[in-house]
Design a protein around this nucleic acid. Structure first.
Lengths: 360, 360
DNA sequence: GGCAGTATTGCATTCGTATGCAATTTGGCG
DNA sequence: CGCCAAATTGCATACGAATGCAATACTGCC
């Protein structure tokens, strides 16, 4: 009954083996294991699944054979038949940002725990999403987490393939996508409020690259709150989230204004650090006595003693945990409606800004 | 002639469509495209390959149909039949190291350029390679780049699956693996030589985690050279490559010695920065007047003005480029023998160490 | 126009696993 | 011991694309 099948497989296998004389034998398949264990291929398949029915005896025989052959189920073939690759795409731009590495590691670990693999797409700039969509779709990823922007058209393409997407720190007008974000506006509001409470009246704002949604939200959050509080002496310059432009921006700011503002609000910690260095070295200023400088993110270097940046830390743990859970949930149950979650940042009263004591 | 085939496919397809009433139609396959274009599935397949023969007319018809259906070749299915997934595994430990993010981004981009996808495995610690091997093999990656250590047994497992491996910044006694590394010993030698030339005679050495090969190589490189030069006043303490332990290590060092050494050699830049902060804040020392502190890696923060770390920069560009090329080459031609490449680091004379001027 | 030679195209099979269905075994229990 | 239900197992086929081989369509040339 099964002889025919076996014979077919065997003869083919043999032929293949003979051909590949040098590199030795091919990887073992479920048929090889089945043959050695004297059972059917279906049985092998079932033993290597969770909820499948297989007797203890069967399980043992198959496992023994599998061990002997070094058999491992082929996830590619499995993906083909189950229509689930168990891979998700993580799209991230310019990791040199210092903030994303942590996000990436955590996301990867969260997915690993749940037995999902991460296909990484690293963009040079946020806009470079060109072939990424194409690749994701070709590899039939089950879902996407993106910290970069896709065009509406790209989104439609992804959506038409029924692949759930979770935006990380960015939202989209499209109502179909889920997102996890840190409430940048609220964070900036806190920073502005504290600075103003402590008597700062003239401001410099250092924004990030123009194609970054995060930067825009932070800038607008700060500017709106400043306006709200009746502060009009505000100068804006823009950098690229990097240290060097942070330094350049500070000088540009001073030059543009013709004086030194009471405080500088940088779109992220790295640029804040650049500003601090330039204030000290380039302009002989003392931080925070002569000027207050604040950032955003709460990255590692912001805590270095030489800077001790006053900032708002993103709750990365909770955000990545949420992002992973939301994505997996939507993969499991595509009928669920999208969800948007916003987390508050954690205020860090560092030494780079002259603030009132808490409760003062 | 093709009617039978078509009919079979069509009936099946229809049935599937009807069942999945809610989510609409399934993703288009090459059969769907073939049907619409009035050609065979093979033709479609050929149009979507590089070196396949297809007439201009054919190409156009198929492409038109494919566009209309939003067809994309299924990389999973392709991988199954071609025995090539076009995915490589990149294994990296604890990205918070600040050095690896850049490596990761660059590797990913190099592979992307060559149309190869990256499956990311992020380890909490270097040792956590447990299930990683299993996963890599199940997904049939074409190759592996690892910045973590695998046990000899794990290596044998990978090797028996004929998957080429390139070690990044670590070598293995096993002769079968290729590797790309920065010559840590030479770098440390340079640092030690310069420090000794400039008159430093007592040393502290801050090593990294014990399971890190990189740390061991750096420590041994420094210690050997110190011995070589007849310096015996050397104290060693160990951290974990992180900022906080850098600070702790400095204090521990001073306490252990009962005095402040002329120079501290840290296993990486981040710990060097920690040492600098602790020297300044915790011990009121001036860097480099009272003490010289050097690191290794050449990461971003090492160039911040407040630290300006004297260090050895790894040539990341060339190293990642090499790693990617070597891996792809070995994938293409498995018969090639492994190769080990070592790159010299780039000496950076920062302000954190009192060295003689060049040529002095 | 005819013929050899080449470029296209289609057919049939293959990759390795999952799974519906039917057949078989096992177990429980009177 | 027998009988029914439940658990286990095997068979056959599907997933979606690639490819050797054979059939067919072009091409150029005399």
């Amino acid at each position: 009954m099964k002889a025919g099948n076996m014979a077919r497989r065997m003869s083919k296998t043999r032929k293949t083996k003979d051909k590949g004389s040098k590199s030795g034998k091919k990887r073992a398949t479920s048929y090889d294991v089945a043959e050695l264990a004297g059972v059917s291929q279906s049985a092998v398949s079932r033993v290597f699944q969770d909820g499948a029915s297989a007797s203890k005896a069967m399980r043992e025989r198959v496992m023994a054979a599998a061990d002997k052959l070094g058999y491992r189920p082929n996830a590619i073939a499995r993906g083909l038949i189950t229509q689930r690759s168990n891979m998700v795409a993580v799209v991230i731009s310019k990791l040199t940002n210092l903030y994303y590495p942590e996000v990436l590691v955590q996301l990867t670990q969260r997915f690993s725990e749940r037995n999902v693999r991460v296909l990484l797409f690293a963009l040079e700039r946020e806009g470079d999403t060109g072939s990424v969509v194409e690749q994701m779709l070709q590899y039939r990823v089950d879902g996407v987490i993106t910290a970069a922007m896709f065009s509406p058209e790209q989104l439609r393409t992804i959506e038409s393939a029924h692949i759930p997407v979770v935006f990380y720190n960015r939202t989209s007008r499209e109502p179909l996508v889920s997102s996890v974000r840190c409430d940048q506006e609220a964070g900036e509001r806190w920073l502005v409020d504290e600075l103003v409470r402590a008597g700062h009246r003239s401001f410099g704002v250092v924004e990030g690259p123009e194609d970054s949604v995060v930067s825009i939200e932070r800038k607008m959050g700060a500017l709106n709150e400043l306006t709200q509080l009746g502060i009009t002496d505000v100068t804006t310059v823009s950098g690229d989230f990097g240290y060097e432009t942070g330094r350049a921006c500070f000088s540009e700011l001073v030059e543009k204004r013709g004086n030194v503002p009471d405080a500088v609000i940088a779109a992220n910690d790295v640029m804040a650090i650049g500003c601090i260095d330039e204030a000290r070295e380039g302009h002989g200023l003392h931080v925070p006595d002569d000027i207050s400088i604040v950032g955003f993110d709460g990255v590692g270097p912001a805590r270095y003693a030489a800077y001790d940046v006053t900032t708002v830390r993103q709750p990365v743990q909770r955000m990545t945990e949420s992002a992973a859970s939301m994505l997996l949930e939507r993969i499991e149950r595509p009928e669920l409606s999208p969800e948007k979650r916003a987390f508050s940042g954690i205020p860090i009263r560092g030494g780079s800004a002259r603030l009132l004591k808490t409760g003062e």
